[in-house]
């Protein structure tokens, strides 16, 4: 028990003393996961919109597929991206394996099903009249889409936060395609796994606290905006 208390106190010390190694790992995590969400969000949310508002062949199959992919293990995504980017793989010439770009690719793939499924639910919550009203008021399809986005912004924000929360905390894919290289591809979850295996609990706890604080911050932000929205309608 005392070792846990000591490790936690050390963790606070590392965080508050602005330990450069620790904050570098945090920076890499945010950079990689932030880039992944920025790359995947536009296309994934647009897909969710099309699945919610337009009828076309295989629509239901696609919805089921994306819902199934929600349970896709991160380590399998890592394996697929590894095979694609390895020297013998079809994208081996890109020389991306064990780089931050490889981690961005894997994390983008991981968060797409969450963004599509939650985006689809959010768009579906706004009935057809939103789109029809915007169109009949003379909005172009793009402007009407933006009107719909504004109407369901809290649902979309929840989708973005859930997607970001999943990829910044996943370890399997990042470890496989990033290689956990210090100062380059070591992010929060891969660092926690490594430091724990070395018995260096303080850094593991400090990084775990960052993830917990992030989860709390994202939820609190969502609650704040949702509360504001419900008061103002």
């Amino acid at each position: 028990m005392s070792s846990l208390t000591d490790a936690t106190l050390d963790a606070f010390h590392l965080l508050l003393s602005w330990d450069p190694d620790l904050w570098e790992i945090i920076g890499i995590s945010f950079r990689v996961s932030g880039t992944a969400i920025l790359i995947s969000a536009p296309l994934a949310l647009l897909t969710g919109f099309f699945l919610a508002y337009f009828k076309f062949p295989l629509r239901r199959v696609l919805i089921s597929l994306f819902n199934t992919l929600l349970a896709f293990p991160a380590v399998v995504v890592g394996l697929v991206v590894y095979l694609l980017l390895s020297n013998q793989g079809p994208l081996g010439d890109w020389k991306l394996l064990f780089t931050q770009s490889a981690m961005v690719i894997a994390q983008s793939i991981l968060c797409v099903p969450i963004l599509v499924s939650m985006g689809h639910s959010a768009f579906q919550a706004a009935d057809q009249r939103v789109w029809e009203t915007a169109r009949t008021l003379g909005k172009s399809p793009i402007a009407a889409f933006l009107v719909v986005v504004n109407e369901v912004k809290f649902g979309l924000l929840a989708a973005l936060f859930a997607g970001f929360g999943r990829i910044i905390a996943e370890v399997g894919a990042s470890m496989m395609v990033g290689g956990n290289i210090l100062h380059y591809t070591r992010n929060i979850p891969t660092a926690i796994a490594l430091e724990t295996s070395k018995g260096n609990f303080a850094q593991g706890i400090a990084l775990g606290m960052v993830l917990l604080f992030l989860a709390f911050f994202l939820n609190a932000t969502l609650q704040y905006f949702q509360g504001k929205g419900s008061l103002n309608h």
Partner: peptide, 17 residues
């Protein structure tokens, strides 16, 4: 048609705000 006509729903949709 979109440019020159307007359809008003039986229960009109009110945008947030």
């Amino acid at each position: 048609l979109i440019q020159h006509t307007l359809y008003l729903h039986q229960t009109p949709y009110m945008f947030s705000g």
